[in-house]
Protein backbone atom coordinates (compact mmCIF):
# COMPACT_ATOMS: atom_id res chain seq x y z
CA UNK A 1 0.00 0.00 0.00
CA UNK A 2 1.03 3.56 -0.59
CA UNK A 3 0.20 5.61 2.47
CA UNK A 4 -1.01 9.17 2.19
CA UNK A 5 1.21 11.57 4.12
CA UNK A 6 -0.47 14.56 5.69
CA UNK A 7 1.82 17.30 6.92
CA UNK A 8 -0.57 19.81 8.39
CA UNK A 9 0.95 19.97 11.82
CA UNK A 10 4.15 21.67 12.79
CA UNK A 11 4.66 19.64 15.94
CA UNK A 12 4.25 16.06 17.14
CA UNK A 13 0.84 14.48 16.76
CA UNK A 14 -1.02 13.64 19.94
CA UNK A 15 -4.35 12.15 18.96
CA UNK A 16 -6.35 10.92 15.98
CA UNK A 17 -10.06 10.29 15.72
CA UNK A 18 -12.38 9.23 12.91
CA UNK A 19 -15.99 10.27 12.88
CA UNK A 20 -18.59 7.53 12.91
CA UNK A 21 -19.12 7.43 9.16
CA UNK A 22 -15.40 7.20 8.65
CA UNK A 23 -15.21 10.02 6.12
CA UNK A 24 -13.51 12.59 8.35
CA UNK A 25 -10.31 12.27 10.32
CA UNK A 26 -9.56 14.67 13.17
CA UNK A 27 -5.97 15.16 14.22
CA UNK A 28 -4.59 16.88 17.30
CA UNK A 29 -1.00 17.92 17.75
CA UNK A 30 1.21 19.89 20.04
CA UNK A 31 0.76 22.88 17.75
CA UNK A 32 -2.41 24.68 18.71
CA UNK A 33 -4.77 23.86 15.88
CA UNK A 34 -6.70 20.63 15.60
CA UNK A 35 -7.29 19.78 11.95
CA UNK A 36 -9.92 17.84 10.05
CA UNK A 37 -9.09 15.86 6.91
CA UNK A 38 -11.08 13.87 4.41
CA UNK A 39 -10.30 10.32 5.34
CA UNK A 40 -10.33 8.96 1.80
CA UNK A 41 -7.82 11.17 0.00
CA UNK A 42 -6.23 13.02 2.88
CA UNK A 43 -7.33 16.47 1.72
CA UNK A 44 -7.45 19.09 4.46
CA UNK A 45 -10.96 20.31 5.13
CA UNK A 46 -10.29 22.81 7.85
CA UNK A 47 -8.63 23.78 11.08
CA UNK A 48 -10.03 24.80 14.44
CA UNK A 49 -8.26 27.93 15.59
CA UNK A 50 -8.56 29.13 19.15
CA UNK A 51 -6.48 27.00 21.48
CA UNK A 52 -3.43 28.48 23.04
CA UNK A 53 -1.52 25.35 23.92
CA UNK A 54 -0.84 21.77 22.86
CA UNK A 55 -4.06 19.95 22.04
CA UNK A 56 -3.97 16.57 23.71
CA UNK A 57 -7.20 14.98 22.66
CA UNK A 58 -10.51 15.30 20.84
CA UNK A 59 -13.77 13.52 20.27
CA UNK A 60 -16.50 13.98 17.71
CA UNK A 61 -20.22 13.51 18.25
CA UNK A 62 -22.01 10.65 16.59
CA UNK A 63 -23.75 12.97 14.10
CA UNK A 64 -20.37 14.58 13.23
CA UNK A 65 -21.67 18.04 14.15
CA UNK A 66 -19.77 18.77 17.36
CA UNK A 67 -16.09 18.44 18.12
CA UNK A 68 -14.69 18.59 21.62
CA UNK A 69 -11.01 19.22 22.17
CA UNK A 70 -8.91 19.22 25.32
CA UNK A 71 -5.78 21.30 25.50
CA UNK A 72 -2.82 22.14 27.69
CA UNK A 73 -4.06 25.77 27.76
CA UNK A 74 -6.41 24.56 30.53
CA UNK A 75 -9.51 24.68 28.40
CA UNK A 76 -11.81 22.25 26.71
CA UNK A 77 -13.60 23.67 23.68
CA UNK A 78 -16.69 22.69 21.76
CA UNK A 79 -16.60 23.38 18.03
CA UNK A 80 -18.91 23.32 15.07
CA UNK A 81 -17.34 20.65 12.88
CA UNK A 82 -18.59 22.19 9.64
CA UNK A 83 -17.48 25.79 10.08
CA UNK A 84 -14.70 25.58 12.64
CA UNK A 85 -16.53 28.05 14.88
CA UNK A 86 -16.00 27.89 18.62
CA UNK A 87 -19.23 27.14 20.44
CA UNK A 88 -18.21 26.94 24.06
CA UNK A 89 -15.15 26.91 26.30
CA UNK A 90 -14.85 25.01 29.56
CA UNK A 91 -12.17 26.57 31.74
CA UNK A 92 -10.15 24.46 34.13
CA UNK A 93 -7.27 25.17 36.44
CA UNK A 94 -5.04 22.54 34.90
CA UNK A 95 -4.39 21.07 31.45
CA UNK A 96 -7.05 18.78 29.99
CA UNK A 97 -5.69 15.44 28.94
CA UNK A 98 -8.59 13.39 27.65
CA UNK A 99 -12.17 13.93 26.48
CA UNK A 100 -14.83 11.44 25.50
CA UNK A 101 -18.48 11.88 24.50
CA UNK A 102 -20.91 9.47 26.08
CA UNK A 103 -23.26 7.33 24.04
CA UNK A 104 -25.94 9.81 22.99
CA UNK A 105 -23.55 12.76 23.21
CA UNK A 106 -25.34 14.25 26.22
CA UNK A 107 -22.37 13.94 28.54
CA UNK A 108 -18.65 14.28 28.17
CA UNK A 109 -15.93 12.99 30.44
CA UNK A 110 -12.85 15.18 30.75
CA UNK A 111 -9.67 14.46 32.68
CA UNK A 112 -7.38 17.16 33.98
CA UNK A 113 -3.72 16.84 34.91
CA UNK A 114 -2.17 17.40 38.31
CA UNK A 115 -0.93 21.00 38.19
CA UNK A 116 0.16 23.65 40.72
CA UNK A 117 -0.75 21.59 43.78
CA UNK A 118 -4.03 20.49 42.24
CA UNK A 119 -4.54 16.75 41.92
CA UNK A 120 -5.73 15.12 38.75
CA UNK A 121 -9.47 14.84 38.32
CA UNK A 122 -12.16 13.35 36.13
CA UNK A 123 -14.96 15.77 35.28
CA UNK A 124 -18.32 14.88 33.79
CA UNK A 125 -20.01 17.72 31.92
CA UNK A 126 -23.48 17.88 30.48
CA UNK A 127 -23.45 18.80 26.81
CA UNK A 128 -26.49 20.82 25.79
CA UNK A 129 -28.03 20.17 22.43
CA UNK A 130 -28.20 23.92 21.83
CA UNK A 131 -24.77 25.47 22.37
CA UNK A 132 -26.30 28.72 23.66
CA UNK A 133 -27.69 26.82 26.65
CA UNK A 134 -24.38 25.19 27.48
CA UNK A 135 -23.21 25.65 31.07
CA UNK A 136 -19.77 25.15 32.49
CA UNK A 137 -20.64 23.35 35.70
CA UNK A 138 -19.62 19.75 36.23
CA UNK A 139 -22.20 17.06 36.82
CA UNK A 140 -19.61 15.04 38.70
CA UNK A 141 -15.98 15.39 39.73
CA UNK A 142 -13.94 12.31 40.63
CA UNK A 143 -10.61 12.66 42.39
CA UNK A 144 -8.33 10.05 43.82
CA UNK A 145 -5.86 8.49 41.42
CA UNK A 146 -2.29 9.68 41.81
CA UNK A 147 -0.55 11.19 38.84
CA UNK A 148 -1.90 12.00 35.43
CA UNK A 149 -4.99 10.27 34.14
CA UNK A 150 -4.09 9.73 30.53
CA UNK A 151 -7.42 8.48 29.33
CA UNK A 152 -10.98 8.17 30.59
CA UNK A 153 -13.77 6.71 28.50
CA UNK A 154 -17.39 5.73 29.02
CA UNK A 155 -18.21 2.14 29.86
CA UNK A 156 -21.20 0.17 28.58
CA UNK A 157 -24.50 2.13 28.66
CA UNK A 158 -22.73 5.16 30.15
CA UNK A 159 -23.03 3.48 33.53
CA UNK A 160 -19.35 3.49 34.22
CA UNK A 161 -16.23 5.48 33.44
CA UNK A 162 -13.03 3.60 32.71
CA UNK A 163 -9.83 5.46 33.48
CA UNK A 164 -6.13 4.73 33.36
CA UNK A 165 -2.99 6.76 33.71
CA UNK A 166 0.38 7.23 35.30
CA UNK A 167 -0.25 4.99 38.31
CA UNK A 168 -0.61 2.04 35.87
CA UNK A 169 -3.93 0.97 37.40
CA UNK A 170 -7.08 0.68 35.32
CA UNK A 171 -10.15 1.77 37.27
CA UNK A 172 -13.87 1.56 36.70
CA UNK A 173 -16.00 4.25 38.34
CA UNK A 174 -19.73 4.58 38.72
CA UNK A 175 -20.68 7.45 36.42
CA UNK A 176 -23.66 8.47 38.62
CA UNK A 177 -22.10 8.55 42.06
CA UNK A 178 -18.40 8.67 41.30
CA UNK A 179 -17.77 5.60 43.44
CA UNK A 180 -14.80 3.38 42.60
CA UNK A 181 -16.21 0.05 41.45
CA UNK A 182 -13.24 -1.94 40.26
CA UNK A 183 -9.49 -1.71 40.12
CA UNK A 184 -7.08 -3.73 38.05
CA UNK A 185 -4.87 -6.15 39.91
CA UNK A 186 -1.31 -4.98 40.58
CA UNK A 187 0.08 -8.44 39.83
CA UNK A 188 -1.50 -8.99 36.43
CA UNK A 189 -1.94 -5.37 35.45
CA UNK A 190 0.44 -2.91 33.88
CA UNK A 191 3.72 -2.11 35.56
CA UNK A 192 4.22 1.37 34.14
CA UNK A 193 2.19 4.33 32.93
CA UNK A 194 -0.81 3.45 30.81
CA UNK A 195 -0.54 5.74 27.80
CA UNK A 196 -3.57 4.84 25.77
CA UNK A 197 -6.90 3.14 26.03
CA UNK A 198 -9.24 2.25 23.24
CA UNK A 199 -12.50 0.37 23.31
CA UNK A 200 -13.91 -2.11 20.84
CA UNK A 201 -16.72 -1.08 18.52
CA UNK A 202 -19.31 -2.88 20.63
CA UNK A 203 -17.76 -1.61 23.86
CA UNK A 204 -17.55 -5.08 25.36
CA UNK A 205 -13.81 -4.95 25.79
CA UNK A 206 -11.00 -2.45 25.60
CA UNK A 207 -7.29 -2.46 25.13
CA UNK A 208 -4.68 -0.49 27.07
CA UNK A 209 -1.15 0.29 26.01
CA UNK A 210 1.59 0.99 28.48
CA UNK A 211 5.20 2.06 28.74
CA UNK A 212 5.93 -1.36 30.27
CA UNK A 213 6.14 -2.56 26.63
CA UNK A 214 2.86 -4.39 26.64
CA UNK A 215 -0.77 -3.94 25.74
CA UNK A 216 -3.58 -5.65 27.58
CA UNK A 217 -7.12 -6.53 26.65
CA UNK A 218 -9.77 -6.18 29.36
CA UNK A 219 -13.45 -6.93 29.78
CA UNK A 220 -15.33 -3.63 30.09
CA UNK A 221 -17.79 -4.88 32.71
CA UNK A 222 -15.79 -7.16 34.96
CA UNK A 223 -12.32 -5.72 34.34
CA UNK A 224 -10.90 -9.19 33.90
CA UNK A 225 -7.66 -9.37 32.00
CA UNK A 226 -8.30 -11.29 28.79
CA UNK A 227 -5.11 -11.03 26.74
CA UNK A 228 -1.64 -9.55 26.90
CA UNK A 229 0.37 -8.49 23.85
CA UNK A 230 4.08 -8.27 24.46
CA UNK A 231 6.31 -6.10 22.36
CA UNK A 232 9.84 -4.75 22.61
CA UNK A 233 9.11 -1.05 22.76
CA UNK A 234 7.05 1.24 24.96
CA UNK A 235 3.49 1.44 23.67
CA UNK A 236 2.16 4.95 23.07
CA UNK A 237 -0.97 4.17 21.12
CA UNK A 238 -3.32 1.25 20.66
CA UNK A 239 -6.32 0.61 18.51
CA UNK A 240 -8.40 -2.34 17.40
CA UNK A 241 -9.68 -3.25 13.98
CA UNK A 242 -13.47 -3.11 13.86
CA UNK A 243 -13.46 -5.69 11.09
CA UNK A 244 -10.86 -8.31 11.89
CA UNK A 245 -9.45 -9.61 15.14
CA UNK A 246 -6.44 -7.37 14.98
CA UNK A 247 -4.87 -5.13 17.58
CA UNK A 248 -2.47 -2.41 16.44
CA UNK A 249 0.24 -1.08 18.73
CA UNK A 250 2.27 2.01 18.05
CA UNK A 251 5.23 3.23 19.96
CA UNK A 252 8.94 3.56 19.91
CA UNK A 253 11.49 4.73 22.32
CA UNK A 254 11.07 7.93 24.21
CA UNK A 255 11.23 11.02 22.05
CA UNK A 256 14.20 12.32 24.00
CA UNK A 257 16.30 9.33 22.92
CA UNK A 258 15.41 9.43 19.25
CA UNK A 259 18.40 11.43 18.12
CA UNK A 260 20.84 9.29 20.03
CA UNK A 261 19.94 5.97 18.44
CA UNK A 262 19.83 4.46 15.01
CA UNK A 263 16.44 4.83 13.36
CA UNK A 264 16.33 1.09 12.71
CA UNK A 265 16.56 0.42 16.41
CA UNK A 266 13.80 2.88 17.16
CA UNK A 267 11.00 0.44 16.30
CA UNK A 268 8.78 3.11 14.89
CA UNK A 269 6.44 0.68 13.17
CA UNK A 270 2.79 0.11 13.84
CA UNK A 271 2.64 -3.52 14.92
CA UNK A 272 -0.35 -5.69 14.10
CA UNK A 273 -1.19 -8.47 16.54
CA UNK A 274 -3.80 -11.17 16.33
CA UNK A 275 -6.27 -10.31 19.04
CA UNK A 276 -6.92 -13.89 20.03
CA UNK A 277 -3.64 -15.70 19.43
CA UNK A 278 -1.62 -12.74 20.77
CA UNK A 279 0.82 -13.31 17.94
CA UNK A 280 2.40 -10.67 15.83
CA UNK A 281 1.01 -10.49 12.29
CA UNK A 282 3.13 -7.76 10.84
CA UNK A 283 4.51 -4.28 11.03
CA UNK A 284 3.90 -1.13 9.02
CA UNK A 285 6.94 1.11 8.79
CA UNK A 286 7.23 4.70 7.77
CA UNK A 287 7.45 7.15 10.65
CA UNK A 288 10.69 8.85 11.56
CA UNK A 289 9.72 9.07 15.19
CA UNK A 290 7.64 7.21 17.71
CA UNK A 291 3.98 6.75 16.93
CA UNK A 292 1.86 8.80 19.31
CA UNK A 293 -1.58 8.21 17.90
CA UNK A 294 -3.40 5.46 16.05
CA UNK A 295 -6.94 5.25 14.76
CA UNK A 296 -8.81 2.69 12.72
CA UNK A 297 -11.40 3.78 10.20
CA UNK A 298 -14.80 2.46 11.39
CA UNK A 299 -15.08 0.46 8.15
CA UNK A 300 -11.88 -1.39 9.06
CA UNK A 301 -10.35 -0.81 5.63
CA UNK A 302 -7.88 1.88 6.49
CA UNK A 303 -6.02 3.17 9.49
CA UNK A 304 -3.98 6.21 10.25
CA UNK A 305 -1.02 6.83 12.49
CA UNK A 306 0.38 10.06 13.84
CA UNK A 307 3.96 10.37 14.88
CA UNK A 308 6.37 12.49 16.80
CA UNK A 309 7.65 13.48 13.35
CA UNK A 310 4.54 15.62 12.76
CA UNK A 311 3.14 13.46 9.98
CA UNK A 312 -0.17 11.70 9.80
CA UNK A 313 0.10 8.63 7.62
CA UNK A 314 -3.15 7.32 6.22
CA UNK A 315 -2.97 3.70 5.11
CA UNK A 316 -5.60 2.10 2.90
CA UNK A 317 -5.07 -1.63 3.14
CA UNK A 318 -4.23 -3.76 0.13
CA UNK A 319 -6.75 -6.51 -0.58
CA UNK A 320 -4.35 -9.19 0.66
CA UNK A 321 -4.45 -7.74 4.17
CA UNK A 322 -7.96 -9.08 4.56
CA UNK A 323 -6.94 -12.68 4.09
CA UNK A 324 -3.73 -12.81 6.07
CA UNK A 325 -3.40 -16.10 7.83
CA UNK A 326 -1.15 -16.83 10.71
Amino acid sequence: MRPILMKGHERPLTFLKYNRDGDLLFSCAKDHTPTVWFADNGERLGTYRGHNGAVWTCDVSRDSMRLITGSADQTVKLWNVETGAQLFTFNFDSPARSVDFSVGDKLAVITTDPFMELTSAIHVKRIARDPSQQTAESALVIKGPQGRINRAIWGPLNRTIISAGEDAIVRIWDSETGKLLKESDKETGHKKTVTSLSKAVDGSHFVTGSLDKSAKLWDSRTLTLIKTYLTERPVNAVTMSPLLDHVVLGGGQDASHVTTTDHRAGKFEAKFYDKILQEEIGGVKGHFGPINALAFNPDGKSFSSGGEDGYVRLHHFDPDYFNVKI
Binding site: P3, K7, W37, R44, I281, G282, G286
Partner: peptide, 16 residues
Protein backbone atom coordinates in the same frame (compact mmCIF):
# COMPACT_ATOMS: atom_id res chain seq x y z
CA UNK B 1 2.04 23.76 -0.11
CA UNK B 2 1.72 20.02 -0.68
CA UNK B 3 0.23 19.23 2.66
CA UNK B 4 -1.08 15.92 1.44
CA UNK B 5 1.20 13.68 -0.50
CA UNK B 6 1.08 10.09 -1.54
CA UNK B 7 4.10 8.21 -0.35
CA UNK B 8 6.54 7.41 -3.11
CA UNK B 9 7.48 4.33 -1.21
CA UNK B 10 5.41 1.20 -1.34
CA UNK B 11 4.87 0.12 2.25
CA UNK B 12 4.09 -3.52 2.87
CA UNK B 13 2.88 -5.12 6.00
CA UNK B 14 6.06 -6.86 7.02
CA UNK B 15 5.44 -10.29 8.34
CA UNK B 16 7.64 -11.30 11.22
Amino acid sequence: SRLTMVSTEEILIERP
